[in-house]
Design a binder for these strands. Sequence first.
DNA 1: ACAAATTTAGGACGATTGATCAATTCTTAT
DNA 2: ATAAGAATTGATCAATCGTCCTAAATTTGT
Lengths: 220, 220
Amino acid sequence: MKEFKQLHRPETGTYLKGQERIENILQAATDILINHGYAGLSMRKIASNVGITIGNLHYYYPTKKDLITNLLENVISGYLEYFETIRKQQDKSAEDRLLEIITFIIEDITTPETTNFFPELWAMSNHDSVVAERMNDLYGKARQDINALVAELNPKLNDDERTQVSLFISASMEGLTPFIGNNKPFHPLAQNMINIAKYSFLNLAKNADSKLLASGKFTL
Amino acid sequence: MKEFKQLHRPETGTYLKGQERIENILQAATDILINHGYAGLSMRKIASNVGITIGNLHYYYPTKKDLITNLLENVISGYLEYFETIRKQQDKSAEDRLLEIITFIIEDITTPETTNFFPELWAMSNHDSVVAERMNDLYGKARQDINALVAELNPKLNDDERTQVSLFISASMEGLTPFIGNNKPFHPLAQNMINIAKYSFLNLAKNADSKLLASGKFTL
DNA sequence: ACAAATTTAGGACGATTGATCAATTCTTAT
DNA sequence: ATAAGAATTGATCAATCGTCCTAAATTTGT
């Protein structure tokens, strides 16, 4: 009778020390990803920044992929919380809430964290399906909220048409990242871009019609 | 008297074979960057794809940074050529030329090369000043052309105001990359996004005024 | 205080990385 | 054809990478 070695897999993060370690690890990994990019993100560097050994790090995250997956969920959950708060502000008008989301997103991309973090994720998502899936989740949630507000502002649009408008608005804002983000050449123009975005997207949301969205024909 | 070893630095790429090698190297490096990202771009993989040894590759590019710098110049020069051709079409109306640029750029970001290549560059530019500089050059040139057309469409705008409009238009289009690019979830909606972009950007270019661009006050 | 489970340290592994060098082969102009 | 320079090979270097494993130390509930 062969005996199989029972590999001992303790439940990590059950002790208080373990929970704090996990927080520290994710924070250190995020910092490195922001400041040195994915190319500079090694397990050893993470462990060193936390002040633990590689062996200990691998106790919490057996593989690097496990760590990155968890890191991603951690970041995304933060954004999802914000979208919830916006969704609950049903007292404000649809127009005000849309303008508020626009302001939040564009101001967010000008922070040091987002400016450096998201381009890394876009690049990673091209070659890592796990990252790609999570990113689509996140942006999908963001579009849901924009979508609901567009529906209030322009009730004549059908689902497909609203999807187009929301997609354009969401994507356009992300595109500002490499230009007005932290340390980027046009960072001082961030507030101006918010103004233009408000005007441009509100106009689009209110005035888009089937003629434009189906065939591209339009009159100004 | 000490004798210094004269290190032999032949002029690479002077023979026909050398010129072809350089082309092959840049092509291989581009392919890898597109298909496997910067993380997968190693000197050995490049050499292997070209069919030469690492030693030979380092003969042409002493360091990896040299190779990447040259690769970047190579890609960018291709875009600059296109912008020149557009600039020369003075027979078409400003409106037509703007719509043409919009179509070109958005169609370009939906190609497999651009969809995967540019997000890598955005990420790299956050941690590599050489890449950052080149990218600013490229986008600067692109905005110059948009800028000239906005000037024709809306002569009342001053330099600062036109800069804002051009920046917003250019950045917004780039933002579509992770969404309607090749293999991306909304790739089938690329043509619809072109339609919206044409409408939205033409409206902005024509109707933007000092009130909007200075303080963000606007009426729809 | 005790026992069980979690947390930690530290060494070792094979693989891969960018880079260097001397020796050899190939191209080209004369 | 020959000589000079360009191109190429192949071995080697130290550094770093992700992962694995064992033994010891620490924390926790009772």
